[in-house]
Nucleic acid binder design. Structure first.
Length: 661
DNA sequence: CCGCGGAGTGTTTTT
DNA sequence: CACTCCGCGG
């Protein structure tokens, strides 16, 4: 079938049907193609597509691979693909009851989880005037981090929050109460999805059913899975051992979220007869870009040793470090360079600007907007995480589950005269109701005599109507209309926000079940505007601006990497430990290996700590062989003098991004 | 008990 | 510089 299109290592991975395989796939080594062709190969060997399970990091990734495979063989569409979280949700819908979960599962997003944790801390009397008890966001991070990183509360405090060690006992109580609270209310946070999925799989009977159903397991981006995901993979495959995991330890960038590199390290121990395949030929980048990548790789403490070699002929141009005076000059230069490249035949869609954190792209965004250059932004706050969208969704969540206390609280506090306390009173009354009708009836108790009563009646009416036998899209319409006056009142720039709400409407139209819509919005975002996906020509597609995290797995002809600056990459938040700095280095590696032909590393001198602060070049460039692989171009003013400063080690501080004079 | 306004805080990455 | 928290007045 695919012989001509694959090299020998790729073919080995593709053609292995039975047994465990670990594929270590360097960037640009054709790993997507391997998965695509392996799916095809399995199907060609008579394996039912429904018995193949492909777990990936994002929905987009699995859809892309399966769509490509389906172009060769339409049966590939029937392969089951998705993220661990969506797969877990599916398992729990079917088997949750057997481990004591309620029928109706409500998925909490990160915001809900924080809200709930905060509520519990308050109830326990911790958050009040008490000294320095951590706030809800930190609490949630501690609790989640402990679970994801397989640590006790004490352990994680010791490692990451030493200053909070005095609160171990209290935080443990919050954790326990939070767990009970979720159980009572039927809530599942992101961690619970994985946790309970693993619980389900621990049941031998269910596990047997599932290993019969999914006979071939494939997992992509295995280096970024956490302990629970690793366990799930193991349990799913433990019986038949037909499991292929693909990953690259050098590209592990989700340690902060609990990615557990032991998963990939221990895979050969878990599956003794495992076949190890390394993909080291790089089909993406020029040798010049790979030289830099290899130097960065050399500085890494990674485990599966590898060297990237270019399959492409031309050596290409050395990556360039660009030096600017300030972010505005830099933005202007990027804008002009991108425009010139377009004139030279490299459309916007083939270029991307990458960065460690969203905020450093703000000056550029302004510049691009001024120049009317169309761009698409990836990373940062998603529109469905914004306050106004969550407001509307809260109403829908109530329709889906009238006991959803967090949503009631959100909906009620919108009303003038209702604050946290009143909302809690009302929602606890509702919580005692048996069904929807009595829940609404419970509102009557408050429907007269209070300042907020007329508003409450209005709310009740809207909800009652939307609850009727209506389509998801009608429900959405009713709620959105009801919400409009609140939107206008709450936000000065409401027209923008109205656009966001309008953007949900077409998504809602695609659903017949409200629960599915809500679950998908929380776990796997439905692709926005599918329209014109392929019909659109590259020339008409926009430029990409993306965080490095969101750029994983993608590639462009030209990449502009913003902020090669101490404190930005590596982030100043990550300077506490060696491990975190190493993760930043891998992030740098991921960024530069996205580029096919041209790579620019951008530095600007003016710091953001005031007019007298100056940036220093990122430590990741500070290595002889790394420096040999790049060229320099200085566009800052009076460059000759300042240039010596960039690598100035004499002040001896290597963990400070800005030096004040 | 609500909600306003002032003060303070802290600023990453995401399923 | 945006958002959150806190304290106070109504």
């Amino acid at each position: 079938m695919s012989d001509k299109l694959l090299n020998s290592s790729q073919r080995e991975a593709v053609e292995t049907i039975k047994g465990p395989v670990l594929v270590i796939a360097g960037p640009g080594s054709g790993k997507t193609r391997v998965i695509e062709y392996r799916v095809l190969n399995l199907i060609e060997h008579g394996i039912k597509p429904e018995s193949i399970l492909l777990l990936t990091f994002t929905r987009r990734a699995s859809a892309e691979m399966l769509n490509r495979a389906a172009e060769h063989d339409p049966r590939a569409c029937k392969v089951e693909g998705g993220t661990f979280h969506s797969f877990a949700y599916k398992l729990l819908k079917q088997y949750g009851a057997q481990i004591g979960l309620p029928k109706n599962l409500i998925i909490m997003d990160e915001d809900d989880a924080q809200e709930a944790v905060g509520k519990i801390a308050t109830r326990l009397g911790f958050s009040g005037g008490d000294k320095k008890f951590p706030q809800k966001g930190t609490l949630r991070n501690i609790i989640s981090g402990a679970l994801n990183k397989n640590l006790s509360i004490e352990g994680i405090l010791e490692k990451e929050y030493e200053h909070l060690s005095q609160f171990v006992g209290d935080i443990e109580r919050v954790k326990k109460n939070y767990a009970e609270y979720k159980k009572e209310n039927g809530y599942l946070d992101y961690d619970d999805l994985l946790f309970y999925a693993r619980e389900v799989l621990k049941d031998e009977q269910i596990r047997n059913i599932l290993s019969q159903k999914y006979e071939y397991i494939m997992v992509d981006e295995y280096q970024d899975t956490n302990k629970m995901q690793g366990d799930i993979t193991y349990l799913l495959a433990s019986k038949h051992k037909n499991v292929m995991v693909v990953g690259d330890d050098a590209q592990s960038i989700y340690g902060f979220r609990g990615a557990y590199h032991e998963n990939i390290m221990n895979f050969p121990d878990q599956f003794k007869e495992c076949k190890l395949v390394k993909l080291e030929s790089n089909y993406r980048s020029t040798q010049a870009i790979l030289d830099l990548s290899n130097s960065v790789l050399d500085n890494m403490e990674n485990k599966f040793k590898k060297v990237l070699t270019a399959a492409r002929e031309s050596t290409g141009e050395k990556p360039t470090i660009m030096y600017f005076g300030d972010a505005e000059d830099e933005a202007e230069w990027i804008k002009e360079t991108i425009q010139e490249a377009v004139l030279d035949g490299m459309p916007f869609a083939h270029q991307a600007v990458l960065f460690r954190s969203s905020y450093i792209s703000i000056p550029l965004q302004a510049e691009l907007a001024r120049a009317r250059i169309p761009f698409k932004f990836f990373g940062g706050l998603k529109f469905y995480e914004t306050a106004h969208v969550k407001d509307v969704l809260a109403h829908l969540k109530i329709l889906a589950n009238f006991k959803d206390e967090l949503s009631w609280s959100r909906v009620l506090t919108l009303l003038p005269g209702i604050g946290g306390k009143t909302a809690e009173n009302i929602s606890s009354t509702i919580h005692r109701a048996e069904d929807w009708d009595s829940a609404l009836a419970a509102l009557d108790e408050y429907s007269a005599g209070y300042k907020y009563s007329p508003y409450l009646l209005d709310l009740k009416e809207t909800l009652a109507e939307a609850f009727q036998d209506k389509t998801v899209s009608e429900k959405f319409g009713l709620v959105a209309d009801y919400y409009l006056p609140f939107l206008k009142d709450k936000f000065d720039e409401w027209p923008n926000r109205l656009n966001d709400l309008e953007a949900i409407r077409p998504i809602a139209d695609n659903y017949t079940d409200l629960n599915d819509l809500l679950a998908d919005l929380a776990i796997e975002i439905p692709e926005e505007n599918q329209k014109g996906k392929d019909s659109e020509k590259d020339e008409e597609k926009p430029l990409t601006l993306s965080t490095i995290h969101s750029a994983k797995g993608l590639e462009w002809d030209a990449v502009y990497l913003l902020g090669i600056i101490e404190g930005i990459l590596p982030s100043k938040m990550a300077l506490k430990s060696k491990d975190e700095i190493e993760e930043e280095r891998r992030l740098f590696y991921v960024a530069i290996t996205r580029a096919r032909n041209k790579l620019f590393l951008l530095f600007h001198l003016a710091g953001n700590m005031g007019p007298m602060s100056f940036n220093r070049l990122s430590r990741f460039l500070d290595d002889p062989s790394v420096l040999l692989s790049v060229q320099h171009k200085d566009l800052s003013m009076g460059n000759a003098k300042k240039k010596t400063n960039y690598n100035d080690e004499t002040d001896g501080i290597d963990d400070d991004e800005s030096v004040e004079y």
